[in-house]
Write a protein that binds this DNA or RNA. Structure first.
Lengths: 169, 169
DNA sequence: AGATGAAGGTTGTCGCGACAACTGATTCTG
DNA sequence: CAGAATCAGTTGTCGCGACAACCTTCATCT
């Protein structure tokens, strides 16, 4: 708590980051709501499930990968279940656990939503940066997540394997 | 809409950024709620007001600088007014307009909250990065905001003048 | 085995932000 | 200078996420 104020360069970076934090989620969310009637978080849930073996994950694991709390995920899955985008069924190996599986309507939604969403990410993020900055951003993200998410559940996934990408489901 | 998928490097950057977007706001918000009983957004409102001439800004201008919509700001100011952190009074020059002024309790709250908040920003952001990365992040932020906030109301402020910093109020 | 504690989920309540609808003041236009 | 469009704000409704409380089921310890 005895840390000094931020200097001008640090402040400049922080103010910018703060603005991005405030603006970007809303922009991406609005696009998906408008065009596909799902939230960005729901999109991500669909995308993560679509890559999992059997398109199925336990709630806890899904929560970790989407970086949600369990209560939040539970609520979201309840809503998605009503729209038949996912199914819940008890886990055979552990009777405490619940599995979530991508259902037909969810897969269709994901496929239809993907192009527009990727396009939005491109327009608002990727295309604004040079190739060099894209790499810098990835490294900066790594550094920040080492503090925010030490276990690395969320970000590590896509870095490791050579398999399908998030948007590729 | 005919844009291609993201390649691996782009995807890596995007996944990281997305994770940061999901995690960082909650962390900072939780610290301020716990230690000072205000949200991060309220903190920012207080900080912006504290730097304005007469510690007063019109609602529209305050909304622009904090990057909130007017309805959102109006609700927030209503709550803060109840806690006597800010005051609202009609603008003499334009009878449509309302001014918001930092009140005593708001100033006290800001002063007490600042060290802990700065510390949190430091621990979770600044200290995780090299000096070089801090500058890179600022440039990346600029680039992103050129798409997200073309008018530059939010981020430009602190870049221009030599005056007091956000945290310096 | 029985108790204790931990893990995995669900549900309820509350607060905040988005969006739409509205009021009142001001500027523009013919 | 009357009417239309615009600007500045406020208010109401709704949906989502945070947090806390709770219920099972599994793991441990003795």
């Amino acid at each position: 708590m005895d840390t000094p104020w931020l200097d001008r360069r640090q402040l400049r970076a922080w103010i910018r980051l703060r603005a991005v934090l405030e603006l970007l989620p809303g922009v991406l969310d609005a696009q998906l709501r408008r065009d596909s009637d799902i939230t960005e978080f729901e999109y991500f849930v669909l995308a993560v499930l679509s890559e999992a073996p059997e398109r199925t994950l336990r709630m806890t694991e899904l929560a970790a990968r989407t970086n949600a709390t369990l209560p939040r995920l539970s609520h979201v899955v309840t809503r998605m279940e009503r729209r038949e985008m996912v199914e819940r069924f008890p886990c055979p190996e552990d009777r405490r656990a619940t599995n979530a599986r991508l259902a037909r309507a969810g897969w269709d939604t994901l496929r239809r939503a993907a192009p527009g969403h990727v396009d939005a990410v491109r327009r608002n993020v990727i295309d604004a940066l040079t190739d060099e900055q894209v790499d810098q951003l990835a490294d900066i993200g790594d550094a920040l997540l080492s503090r925010l998410d030490p276990s690395g559940t969320m970000s590590a996934i896509y870095a490791r394997h050579d398999g399908p990408d998030e948007e590729d489901a």
